[in-house]
Amino acid sequence: MSAAAPSKSGFFDCRDSFAATIEALAEADPRIVTVVSDSVGSSKLGNFRKKFPDRMVNVGIAEQTLVAVGAGLANGGKVPFVSAASCFITGRALEQVKADIAYSNVNVKLIGQSSGVAYGELGPTHHSIEDLAWLRLFNNMKLIVPADPWQTAEAIKAAAAHDGPVFVRVSRMAVPALERPEGAKFEIGKAETLVEGTDATIIANGTMVHRAVAAAKTLAAEGISARVVNMATVNPLDEAVIASAAETGAIVTVEEHSVRGGLGGAVAEVVATTNPVPMRILGFPGFVPTGSAEWLFDHFGLNEAGIADAVRQTIARKK
């Protein structure tokens, strides 16, 4: 059940990790089924279908039914992993996510594939930079945004082990495997500190974490000690880690999401009501112009240089 083997470039598509993990889990637990909306290829579930043809339910291009069928399968004793493009599984089926999954409080795992701006040039209809803001309103739904293949595998395992609704936001954007201490563990609701620092804290998740680590290295060369926290769980938040971040006196959040209501908004709610310190929220301002995902990251400063700049500016606002 380990993460996918390294590709030549050393970068990974986390969907491979998702697929390998769900196959291994399904071998061990006959209750596990997958539910798709003609999204087998985009979810990389072709091999799952080969291995478990009777345990994949394909409802066709019908996201409301996709999510509702997940709720029904849970009622029938299954552990359904409902997997489709994040923009549709959330936005198109939002009321089913609310009423059938969250409010009914059933044991369904929603897998939001190709989240953020992964579908770059296809435009805002296919971007999913609103999903966390929408789902964060459902207090009982765990929201996980893994940063690399290992964490994706761990998040899928944790989702299967948790009895209740979980959303895992999976990316198709290539990311490197993060360096972690030996024996690192993933737990829903616990953030991990990847770089220690005292002058400021960068709180990131998903595809932005390795960029935050690179920014911290740049800053260290200038004598600025920036902590990097990988806050993979957006709900529930690790409030202790946020409290500790506030003690560094400056916080920059960075996410592949709108600046409204996502990780930054969640962290700001805690910081503003406990220990207000200067903050900066990096993300997308709203609907974005045409461009590849990488171009969009650069255009909106969601890269090493942009994050480092934001940290310098936020430190300058310290009193």
């Binding site: 009777d54 409301q64 997940g70 029904g72 009622n75 004793g77």
Partner: peptide, 13 residues
């Protein structure tokens, strides 16, 4: 749609 999912669970089993 939810009943559909319940019936599919029954069908699988």
């Amino acid at each position: 749609p939810v009943a559909t999912g319940i019936a599919i669970a029954g069908q699988i089993d």
